[in-house]
Design a protein around this nucleic acid. Structure first.
Lengths: 185, 185
DNA sequence: TTTTGCGTTCGAGTGCGCTCGAAGGCGTAG
DNA sequence: CTACGCCTTCGAGCGCACTCGAACGCAAAA
């Protein structure tokens, strides 16, 4: 839940649309500050914070994405840096970066400062991947909105968006009659 | 490749950004017209058109998403309606709809016109999912752009985006010095 | 003292969406 | 005639990212 909360708050901070302002970026950065968190956290606390399962956190560790210290009982102790890295890892995973690429990136981090240029290459490439994906999704969204707006097609005569439609926002383009019957999909 | 071409052309038609105009939606719709295609197509031709493998097309058929006629040799013959449905299916898959939901939707289509309201529910829900996904990606994109712009952190002193960086567009916010060292991720 | 509840390791299992291999049929090219 | 190339069906295999079960440890609560 907690990560969803972060996401939600961040989205609210960003506002509905428009170009992302520097101000918005700072607000976003603030959300990653992690101020107010305890100095060390248990696996359950981190899992809760990031909306991952303890299983997944152990899996990331097994996968070499992060090293976590243990206490006297052999229990994991996540310090602030570990949490910061996990925030980063989670963000990359959520935005679609494969585990493999993330492992490569982390190996660069662990290899030292001279790998910074290569790390930047990875980040830039992933940035471009996200941009492409957003464009693809925007295109599909447009097509689906069009389909919703003009749905009627060959399937039946009495086609009208029912009141039960749950979505918010502009589902219809009232002044745009469909130019031809749509397929009954 | 062909679907990528469609995508590319559609994206170009839509322009770089801004709210999607009705005009743009019409241009987009035109791209789905499939005018100029032969009346029937072989599996290889359809695969080529949609940038899927013949394997995948057979898999969709096995999964009950589409029925395809056969010729005298038992070979699949895709008519215009089949191709139209596959365009739709491909778009839904590309935009992240699970096979299960698609199977449900198709079962509604096959059940007749009285399922139109429920179909609209499915479409609206998927539309909202895409919107959420775009917002998530936009947020991640912003964070990654911020990281690229301010990359330096604790890893080393001589941090500067190398000439090898391949991306286009605004990678840097020149007047925004990082407010604190970033972690060496 | 026993139970509850959290943690540990290890390896195996799951769900998704393909992806492939095997074995064979048909029609054309050389 | 043989080979090539594309098609068919069927079932199995794969890559990914988890997800879970088993067997156990430790410690505070009942």
């Amino acid at each position: 839940m907690a990560t969803d909360d972060l996401m939600t708050r961040a989205l609210e901070a960003l506002g509905d649309d428009g170009p992302l302002s520097v101000e918005a970026i700072h607000r976003l950065a603030d959300l990653t500050d992690l101020a107010g968190l305890p100095e060390t956290m248990t696996i359950a606390e981190v899992a809760d914070l990031l909306d991952l399962s303890p299983h997944t956190l152990r899996y990331y560790e097994r996968a070499g994405l992060i090293e976590v210290a243990r206490d006297g009982h052999g229990h994991r102790v996540y310090d602030a840096e570990a949490v910061r890295r996990l925030v980063f890892l989670t963000r990359m995973r959520l935005s679609g970066m494969p585990m493999r690429d993330l492992q490569h990136y982390i190996s660069l981090v662990d290899a030292g400062g001279h790998t910074v240029p290569e790390r930047l290459d990875v980040l830039v490439e992933h940035r471009d991947t996200i941009r492409r994906r957003i464009r693809e999704l925007t295109l599909s969204l447009t097509a689906i909105e069009y389909k919703i707006a003009t749905y009627g097609g060959t399937a039946g005569p009495d086609v009208q968006a029912p009141g039960a439609v749950t979505g918010t926002g502009r589902a219809a383009l009232p002044d745009e009659p469909p130019r031809r019957a749509l397929p009954a999909e």
